[in-house]
Design a protein around this nucleic acid. Structure first.
Lengths: 94, 94
DNA sequence: GTATTTTGGTTTATAAAATAAACTAGTTTA
DNA sequence: TAAACTAGTTTATTTTATAAACCAAAATAC
């Protein structure tokens, strides 16, 4: 009847981050912050969770002297996202 | 970019209840409990929230001697559900 | 008849999550 | 060299979801 909704993706901010990363393949912290409108603290926490689940890869680098955190979608993340979308459909179509 | 996801609907159990009520126009507590697999306590709380928001109407009746709680979708609930689905699409399609 | 289980819930307590506020460390600008 | 800004992290608070405990009535078993 109803499929389980992956709780890691069933969160507005994490879903937005995943959506951006699926589309972009690479995005930094500042970009994600601007596009999602999230606060830095909230974004930091949610990125950490997605990373912990293996849904994204996070690389901390420097751009000149400034720190730069780059996020990329991981294969496991793509899979989870697709599953999530499929599960959602069990709620919103018939 | 990303639309707000109505927090009242962005919950697995409440979404399942709404989905059932949209399809059925009327369902009782026991039916909703069976279809969603929720515990009675959780379902009771979530029904109360949907009712409080005006998304559903709840009528407590008796069937013979046994209590029976009947839920129906309200116009405001249909609207909110459609909005929610539209908002979701901003996350899952490009 | 009276004790036990079942039905149909509600209320209360606990665990987990989201979010914001406060903080850190370094950088640039004035 | 002080003030303000960048790019975050950590910690605390609020909200939510969920489960566990409870309640009242009815049905069943003894």
């Amino acid at each position: 009847m109803f499929k389980e909704l992956d709780p890691l993706l069933h969160s507005q901010l994490r879903l937005a981050v995943m959506s951006l990363l699926i589309g972009a393949e690479e995005a930094d912290f500042v970009f994600l912050k601007e596009k999602t409108g999230a606060t830095a603290g909230n974004l930091s926490v949610q990125i950490e969770k997605l990373k912990g689940a293996g849904y994204i890869d996070v690389e901390k680098t420097f751009q000149g002297k400034m720190p730069r955190t780059i996020c990329k979608i991981a294969p496991k993340g793509i899979e989870a996202f697709n599953e999530y979308v499929k599960a959602l459909k069990s709620y919103i179509n018939g």
